[in-house]
């Protein structure tokens, strides 16, 4: 098995005529936690979607465990299923992520599409509902959930597949402090499970708690990389990337 989960080489991508990523190269080592930092519109979400093989780069290459990820590969059911099971993406907006009629259906959606046996699905979904403390919401419609509940359902719907790589887009955004600390505690618990994490955020406070490495993006380009301590020390770079306000 390769040491790196992802290897991106000179990836560029534009969306509706706007350059979202410009010449980005990076590696994500197995079992590490990488934070993608940057202001809104810097390309974090696009990068996550490239890692999740939802977008494919205009130029440059993406490798997953050494194998190239291309649109053609995803034409095959077996490849697509294997990849989708192993790489999970939690979207920032829970209204995008939660499209099923009830919480139960939502959590069962992934396993159903991947063709798991129905009995195993029922059992695993119930376990996941218990683990995320959302069992009492199982028949609830998504529009009747609070922000924190939605986030937990979104996490459950991805983690039920037990992915080895978890991609999270602004996991703590727009949550009350209590839900926020719940999510952070959850993310910390995955460290011991050997999961590879890529977390897009603009919340610098979380950095030391949830990340081993950081990558700063600014207008689609890499503006800096290093450990959380190194990044937090480089004030001029953070200023340029609009991650901190100029001191008054």
């Amino acid at each position: 098995m390769a040491v790196n989960v992802f290897e991106l080489e000179r990836v560029s991508f534009s969306y509706r005529g706007v350059t979202a990523l410009d010449d980005v190269s990076l590696t994500v080592p197995t079992g590490r936690r990488l934070a993608l930092l940057g202001a809104n519109g810097c390309g974090k979400s696009t990068l996550l979607r490239i890692l999740a093989a939802l977008y494919f780069p205009d130029s440059g290459s993406v490798r997953y465990h050494g194998a190239p990820l291309t649109e053609a590969e995803f034409e095959h059911d077996s490849f697509s299923h294997a990849f989708r099971k192993r790489v999970g993406l939690v979207f920032q907006n829970p209204d995008v992520q939660l499209f099923c009629p009830t919480v139960f259906d939502e959590v069962a959606f992934g396993p159903l599409q991947l063709g798991w046996p129905k009995e195993r699905i029922r059992q695993t979904v119930n376990e996941a509902l218990d683990y995320f403390e959302i069992a009492d919401l199982r028949e609830r419609a998504p529009h009747r959930l609070s922000g924190g509940e939605k986030k937990r359902v979104a996490l459950a719907s991805v983690l039920i597949m037990d992915p080895e790589v978890i991609l999270l887009d602004e996991p703590t955004a727009a949550l009350d402090p209590r839900s926020q600390s719940q999510i952070v505690a959850l993310m910390k618990s995955w460290e011991s499970l050997g999961k590879t994490l890529v977390i897009a955020t603009h919340d610098l406070h979380l950095l030391t708690e949830i990340a081993d490495d950081c990558l700063v993006l600014d207008k689609g380009r890499i503006a800096g990389r290093g450990t959380p301590a190194e990044i937090l020390a480089d004030e001029s770079m953070l200023l340029r990337a609009n991650l901190i306000r100029p001191a008054c």
Partner: peptide, 15 residues
């Protein structure tokens, strides 16, 4: 995209 990320490929499977 969110559906694709969880394995949807055009046919929906339900319990």
């Amino acid at each position: 995209l969110a559906m694709q990320a969880r394995g949807y490929r055009g046919e929906v499977h339900v319990l």
